[in-house]
Design a protein around this nucleic acid. Structure first.
Length: 884
RNA sequence: GGAAACAUAGCUCAGCUGGGAGAGCAUCUGGGUCACAACCAGAAGGUCAUGGGUUCGAGCCCCGUUGUUUCCACCA
């Protein structure tokens, strides 16, 4: 590879080439390795039908950063990838595709339909993973899994049978959420409650045997009236004591229903009388159970009225509502209609209003497993980042109900339950249908037609992908995993179910940390969505600015759990940063030329600025590592960014230039060595965040290195600890800034004459450093060229003139600086110092601080106080002088 | 109805266990400078929503208020 780099960084071509190189090098592959500690992340499996969106980009960037970081630290880092069959989402898509071709799924039948699904999966299943690769994802693709592959299916069957045998999976007639459009049951989590404007219809139910007397009920769903089997009042409601036990005539029918008393009824709400429809309302269902009421189903699966509904049979539920309300009105039973807003359950995929229905379904008992999941959080075995999401988790678990896992879909894991064709006996078992019925000896069986909720299989993902239920080396080594990265929107669906499944099946919490991120929104804060058309395609961003720029954009200035907005300007800023590194590296490599540098360098050979920058990058490594370990990725990358751009490029490289331009090669060695060393360190710190550009530069800079991916993560070392130089250079920087301020203030430009350099700081040490002619001052040469030129024939100072010809140390009040301004500045400075002194005195006067704070911190404060007092003295003296 | 989060510069957002209010973008000024104009140097801009409290000291901790957002929820 040549050391000649283009003037501007162009990620195109480079990224794909490097990714190929990584793949071929096998760097993503993690294997069981007893010599190393494992680090594992399971990738939330994207839907096979999915298309990469910003959410994926964020989620996977974070995982890639953590994986690359740990890999560099010497862990055997496994990022386990795969895809999810996404039962209903895929089934809907395939169904629609077939519909477009004029094919009806029921006509072609289950087998044929599944063939289409697999075809679809083969076609699109790897697309999303390819897209993830464009991001630079370093997942172990050789271990790619699919929730419906052989191994995962085996795990699903095993878990189902175990839970069944334990009695925690049962089949029951229960009221469930039914989507009339998708014709399947839904779990509670799949139901979205949406506020809708509706009405309260107040209807009179005549009391049997008491003509002219009515009970007035209020309902939002009059069409369910035909399924009423009682009217309930609160047992403590004085108004209705006499009604309890009486019979009512159900309007529009010939039936008579009782008035019952139940705690569930709120006296204050509506009329205090509630019609009870056990077959079509979850609460009424419970009430019905308590009072042994009949459950009358009045709806077909597509939410039309069924044949028990007389003249309304065949009508859609909303048509029927209209017709019935109109009929009630005609009969004079409609009292009034009151507008009312209420939350209506809708299917989160198709947004159809969900219909509560009684259906035979399979359920998982949640009590014990829910408690175990809660315990994991309570004991600290499981931690959320940020912590507050633990409350969300707990709240959900507190209110958990049994999980309806059966779906009336074809695409998914079929329930391993078989019914004897002869006697109907139910057998649940592994490995296909039984050969003989244990009850009647029959040999023909029919498998339950239902499939499992898609989350049933994803709940097993952290261990099914590692070979469970078989005892595999991978299970022993990589499980439990370390951290799960996901969005807050999926805590209920997925995180909780993985936790309790992991604990129940493996005895271990499947991961110890859950790193939660927010949503990527558009620049106006709206959710990105297809219908709004405001989604931004990550691939387009990558194409225009590169994956590194996209990754940096997603990571900077974002705290865990918080939503962020997407701005193209931010991407540009990220791209600019990439370009900055590129050019700094270009400059360094240009200067390195063919120079042969030693591996290490004696500290004594290094100049103050060299020591300062080494000190700074060394401490940066420590801080960044701490941030990474706390999952503060945004803070970590911000620090790296600031270091590279400001400290390294704007200060150190500028300071280095005068030395680089000397002819003596030997003299150049320390500075060249420092440039290369610090750049290497910085690139390694940055690599997890911006893998491509760091790889490209690192390998050009160090031709012997194969890749930065497995270069060691920088560790803090005492060797590079140079506190004195660090402080000294910081003071010099202050001084230089002061010079620049004055220059700006005086509007010095070529052609004007400036004979004095002004040092702003009153600090004695700065002056002494100038007097000692510290080599660091050569750093002024570049940035302050204009001044240097102008001061060439100024008053000479021996020490300074070596580095700044003609410059002199001079604290002027008269000719160059506005007296009033200077006086005002000093006054302000004096105020600030007084405040600082007061703060230090406060701290040092506080016993709690003195006893509790670490000794070095106390000393630090003492030093500060001393310093501030001195400075205050000096400023005071100067002010006094000026007042004269 | 319950819960949570948020409110910091013109905009978007960082700010770890209390001790210097910060970044990017935008604005203004100066600069064609031999890595980079996708740049450099500098400036301006904030009563950290509001009212109390704890503390020597609060953007940070506690309580109230206002505003925004999100999640959960069976009030017919």
């Amino acid at each position: 590879m040549s050391k000649e780099l283009a003037k501007q960084y162009d990620p195109k071509g480079i990224e794909d080439r490097l990714y190929q190189k990584w793949m071929q090098g096998g760097y993503f592959h993690a294997k069981v390795n007893p010599d190393k500690k494992p680090f594992t992340i399971v990738m939330p499996p994207p839907n096979v039908t999915g298309q990469l969106h910003m959410g994926h980009a964020l989620d996977n960037t974070m995982q890639d950063i953590l994986t690359r970081y740990k890999r560099m630290q010497g862990y055997e880092a496994l990022w386990q990838p795969g895809t999810d069959h996404a039962a209903i989402a895929t089934e809907v898509k395939v169904t629609n595709m077939l519909k477009d071709q004029g094919i009806d799924k029921h006509e072609i039948g289950r087998e044929k339909f599944l063939e289409y699904c697999w075809q679809w999966k083969d076609e699109y299943g790897s697309r999303i993973l390819k897209q993830l690769q464009k991001l630079g994802s370093s997942a172990d693709w050789s271990r790619e899994r699919f929730t419906m592959d052989e191994g995962c299916s085996k795990a699903v069957e095993e878990v189902f049978c175990r839970l069944y045998e334990k009695g925690w999976i049962y089949k029951g007639n229960r009221i469930i959420n039914w989507c009339p459009k998708c014709q399947t049951s839904l779990s509670d989590a799949e139901v979205e409650h949406v506020d809708q404007d509706g009405f309260f219809w107040h209807i009179n139910y005549p009391i049997v045997g008491e003509p002219g007397r009515f009970v007035e009920i209020a309902t939002t769903r009059p069409e369910t009236l035909l399924g009423d089997t009682a009217v309930a009042v609160n047992p403590d409601d004085e108004r209705y004591q006499d009604l309890i036990g009486k019979m009512l005539k159900l309007p529009l029918t010939d039936r008579e229903i009782p008035v019952i008393a139940d705690e569930y009824v709120d006296k204050e709400f509506g009329t205090g009388c509630v019609k009870i429809t056990p077959a079509h309302d979850p609460n009424d269902f419970e009430v019905g159970k308590r009072h042994n009421l009949e459950e009358i189903n009045i709806l077909n699966d597509d939410a039309t009225m069924n044949d028990r509904c007389g003249k309304y049979a065949g009508m859609d539920r909303y048509e029927a509502r209209k017709a019935m309300v109109s009929d009630l009105e005609k009969q004079g039973l409609l009292v009034k209609v009151v507008p009312h807003t209420h939350a209506v359950g809708t299917h989160d995929r198709c947004h159809t209003t969900v219909e509560p229905m009684i259906k035979p379904q399979w359920f998982v008992r949640m009590k014990e497993m829910g408690e175990a999941a809660q315990k994991a959080l309570d004991t600290g075995d499981l931690k959320f980042v940020p912590e507050s999401y633990g409350k969300t988790y707990t709240h959900w678990l507190d209110n958990i109900r049994d999980w309806c896992i059966s779906r009336q879909l074809w695409w998914g894991h079929r329930i391993p339950a078989y019914y004897c064709d002869d006697c109907g006996e139910l057998v649940v078992q592994r490995g296909g249908a039984p050969s003989k019925c244990p009850k009647c000896g029959g040999t023909h069986f029919t498998q339950d037609p239902d499939t499992l909720d898609t989350w049933f299989s994803s709940a097993l993902w952290p261990f099914s992908t590692l070979g469970w239920p078989d005892k595999t080396p991978e299970m022993d080594y990589f499980y439990p995993t370390d951290v799960l990265v996901t969005g807050y929107d999926i805590i209920f669906f997925w995180v909780i179910r993985m936790v309790f499944s992991g604990i129940e099946q493996t005895g271990k919490t499947p991961f110890h940390h859950v790193l939660i991120h927010g949503l990527v929104r558009d620049s106006q804060g709206r959710k990105m969505s297809k219908s709004l058309g405001n989604g931004i395609d990550p691939l387009e961003v990558i194409d225009q600015y590169g994956a590194d720029a996209l990754r940096l954009t997603l990571m900077t200035g974002n705290a865990p759990g918080n939503d962020m907005r997407f701005y193209w300007e931010k991407v540009e800023a990220s791209r600019n940063f990439a370009n900055k590194i590129w050019n700094a590296s270009r400059f360094i490599m240009m200067n390195l030329g063919d120079a042969v540098l030693p591996e290490t360098m004696e500290a004594s050979a290094l100049a103050a600025p060299d020591r300062w920058i080494l000190h700074t990058v060394n401490n940066l490594a420590r801080e960044v590592t701490e941030n990474m370990d706390k999952y503060e990725l945004g803070i970590a990358v911000q620090k790296i960014y600031d270091f590279i751009w400001e400290e390294f490029c704007d200060w150190y490289i500028e300071m280095a230039k005068p030395r680089l331009y000397k002819d003596d090669t030997d003299e150049k060695l320390p500075v060249l060595w420092t440039l290369r060393t610090v750049l290497s360190e910085a690139l390694r710190l940055l690599h997890p965040f911006m893998p491509f550009i760091t790889e490209e530069i690192y390998c050009t800079l160090n031709p012997d290195e194969e890749t930065i991916m497995i270069a060691p993560w920088p560790e803090y070392t005492n060797e590079y600890e140079f506190p004195e130089e660090a402080e000294g250079v910081e003071l010099i920087k202050d001084a230089i800034r002061g010079v620049r301020n004055i220059r700006t203030e005086l509007n010095v430009s070529p052609g004007r004459r400036l004979t004095h350099l002004y040092i702003v700081s009153e600090d004695e040490r700065i002056r002494s450093m100038f007097e000692r002619g510290m080599t660091v001052l050569v750093g002024l040469a570049h940035a302050e060229k204009a001044i240097i030129q102008e001061t060439r024939d100024g008053i000479g100072d021996d020490a300074l003139s070596a580095v700044l010809p003609g410059a002199t140390l001079y604290i002027p009040f008269g000719d160059l600086v506005d007296r009033d301004k200077e006086f005002a500045r000093l006054t302000k400075e004096s105020e600030r110092l007084k405040k600082e002194v007061k703060r230090c005195e406060g701290m040092l006067g506080n016993e709690r601080f003195l006893t509790k704070a670490p000794a070095d911190k106390v000393q630090q404060e003492k030093d500060k106080l001393e310093k501030y007092r001195q400075m205050l003295d000096q400023v005071g003296t100067r002010l006094a002088q000026m007042q004269k």
